[in-house]
Nucleic acid binder design. Structure first.
Lengths: 200, 200
DNA sequence: GTCTATATTCCGATAGAC
DNA sequence: GTCTATCGGAATATAGAC
């Protein structure tokens, strides 16, 4: 009798250094912006030499490609989760928009830092992301106008949580409270409109 | 009899070159991001030499200070207009949030490009701006929760109009339509809640 | 007030040792 | 696979002529 104790998969784990470099790139973009995120700084933060970094990512553009690849993978996983969220798609979207600490949030914020120099690939990836969320929301709430409102609120929460964030926060200003308050208003609006034809 | 034909004010007009440089700085930040907005590029776009630029702004930081000064002045003027807006403060705020082409919008977008490297002065100026809008909105709608929702929608419109913008736009996706649709929903919500105590 | 020329630092990328 | 050393170019800022 043969017992397989551990499944030895033929796929080798991705080199740890590559992920470390990507993590450092991501964190520096978030905390210091694109201008200060030089290859030297990334290598230093990742604990490797510049030559070691260049071995994994041949150029600065390759580093950006690596980040966008990570973003796409995490975003697709998030869309799958959103579609089957027990609390409903709208609640899932609003709640996750008010936070900025999941792996997806972090890479998304980092990618937004790159959006600024009319970087077309970054723009396309983020547009596709937005489109994915929008489709799910339209299906969930029925009315495209309400779906747009929900997306706008989500964008606003995201903006507040990332770009403008960092100000003093009291207990009533935590992500959970912000999301709960605004979610209540949105559901109130959906309820008030229920039975009415979309677009009226 | 003495007739004053033209009032010769003792305050000389600000040097045109200074404003030209600030305009170029602003435009480059918006269109190419902070990384590509070098002093060389700004001088070239403004049609002056680097030495001429440095005469007006001693350093890169001084250039940023100049932009933040312009932002503060335009923002205060906007707040005054918002307070006396005939169509109401909420409509004024939502409508202006959906556009990104007023002098205030342009300098605001440019300043947002600088927000990314945890630039504390920029952060403070933008936080003060947000706070000013919020106070007016709370006074206008009564309920802090609704005021927050309105601000979130405004932030979302702003995000869509600036950061994510650039995608294909059909006729139904113009700023005016976006603002009108979402403004209708918000007023519907306010109406549905009218008479109820705030925070319920 | 605006210019040219230059000093200095730093960035991205290459070459080649280990 | 990771390192050190280094090149070419670009960025900020200074010096000084006009």
């Amino acid at each position: 009798m043969v017992v397989i104790l551990a499944t030895v998969v033929p796929v080798p784990p991705p080199p740890a250094a590559r992920d470390k470099v990507l993590d450092a790139f991501q964190q520096l973009l978030i905390e210091h912006g694109e201008r200060e995120t030089t290859l030297d700084a990334v290598a230093r933060a990742a604990g490797v030499s510049k030559g070691g970094l260049i071995y994994h990512f041949n150029s600065r553009e390759a580093l950006i490609d690596g980040l966008l690849g990570r973003l796409t993978a995490l975003a697709n996983a998030d869309l799958d989760q959103m579609r089957v969220a027990p609390e409903g798609q709208v609640a899932y979207y609003i709640r996750t928009s008010a936070r900025a600490d999941s792996p997806l949030d972090l890479v998304l914020i980092a990618a937004t830092r790159l959006l600024q120099r009319s970087h077309s690939r970054t723009r396309e990836v983020l547009a596709a992301l937005h489109d994915g969320w929008y489709r799910v929301l339209v299906e969930a709430v029925g009315d495209p106008a309400v779906a747009r409102l929900v997306m706008l609120v989500g964008d606003g929460l995201y903006y507040a949580a990332t770009l403008a964030g960092g100000g003093p926060q009291d207990a009533s200003d935590q992500p959970e409270h912000r999301a709960t308050d605004v979610l209540g208003l949105i559901q109130e609006l959906i309820h008030a409109r229920s039975g009415r034809p979309p677009g009226s």
